Amino acid sequence: MTANVYKRKISLRIKRKRRIRAKISGCATCPRVSIFKSNRTVYAQVINDVNSTTLCASDGKVLSLKANKEGAKALAKDLAAKLKDKGIEQVVFDRNGYVYHGVVASFADALRENGIKL
C-alpha cells in the first residue's frame, strides 16, 4: 500500500472520532474510557472531561500484552480493577474512531465481564 492509502485511513478514523466525541462526554460519576490500539499494543485511559483529567490508565506495553483479543481482555481486567479501587462502577465507552469489532469489542466485553457497566 502506498502512503496515500495510509493517510486516507487515518483521516477517516479521525473523522469518525470527531463524530463520536461530539456525542459523548465523561464526568466524575460516569467517566469516559478511551481505547487506543497500535500494531503492537493496546492502551486505555479513563477520562473526566469536565476537569480534563485522566483518572487512571492501563498500558499494554507495561503489562507486556500484544494487540490481539487476549491482550485486550487482560488490559480490560487490569483497568476494571483500577476502576473498582477508585469506586467507579459505570463508564461511557469511547471507541476512538475504531470499528466496534475484534480487539475493541473484546475489550468492551471484558470490561462488562469484570463488573463495569458501559
Rank of each mutant, 00 (worst) to 15 (best):
N4M: 08
N4D: 14
N4I: 04
N4E: 14
N4Y: 10
N4A: 13
V5D: 09
V5N: 11
V5P: 00
V5R: 15
V5Q: 12
Y6H: 13
Y6A: 15
Y6S: 13
Y6C: 04
K7D: 13
K7G: 02
K7I: 04
R8D: 12
R8Y: 08
R8P: 00
K9V: 14
K9E: 13
K9W: 04
K9R: 15
I10W: 00
I10H: 07
I10Y: 01
I10M: 12
I10G: 00
I10T: 07
I10Q: 11
S11E: 13
S11V: 00
S11M: 05
S11H: 12
L12N: 07
L12F: 10
L12T: 05
L12K: 12
L12W: 03
L12H: 05
R13Y: 06
R13C: 04
I14G: 00
I14S: 05
I14H: 03
I14W: 00
K15Q: 12
K15H: 10
K15M: 10
K15C: 03
K15R: 10
K15P: 07
K15A: 11
R16G: 01
R16E: 09
R16Q: 11
R16M: 07
R16H: 11
K17T: 09
K17I: 02
K17V: 03
K17Y: 09
K17Q: 15
R18D: 06
R18S: 07
R19L: 13
R19V: 08
R19K: 13
R19Y: 09
R19T: 09
I20W: 10
I20P: 05
I20K: 15
I20T: 13
I20C: 10
I20N: 11
R21T: 03
R21I: 01
R21P: 00
A22G: 04
A22Q: 13
A22F: 05
A22M: 08
A22T: 06
A22R: 12
K23R: 15
K23E: 11
K23C: 02
K23M: 10
K23I: 07
I24C: 11
I24D: 07
I24M: 07
I24Y: 07
S25C: 07
S25Q: 12
S25V: 03
S25H: 10
S25G: 06
S25Y: 09
G26T: 01
G26L: 00
G26V: 02
G26F: 01
G26R: 00
C27I: 08
C27N: 15
C27H: 02
C27E: 04
A28S: 12
A28F: 12
A28T: 12
A28C: 07
A28G: 01
T29D: 14
T29C: 01
T29P: 00
T29L: 11
T29V: 03
T29Y: 10
C30S: 10
C30A: 04
C30T: 15
C30M: 15
C30P: 01
C30K: 14
P31R: 01
P31T: 03
P31F: 04
P31E: 03
P31K: 02
P31N: 03
P31H: 02
P31D: 02
R32H: 08
R32S: 06
R32D: 04
R32W: 09
R32K: 14
V33W: 06
V33H: 10
V33A: 11
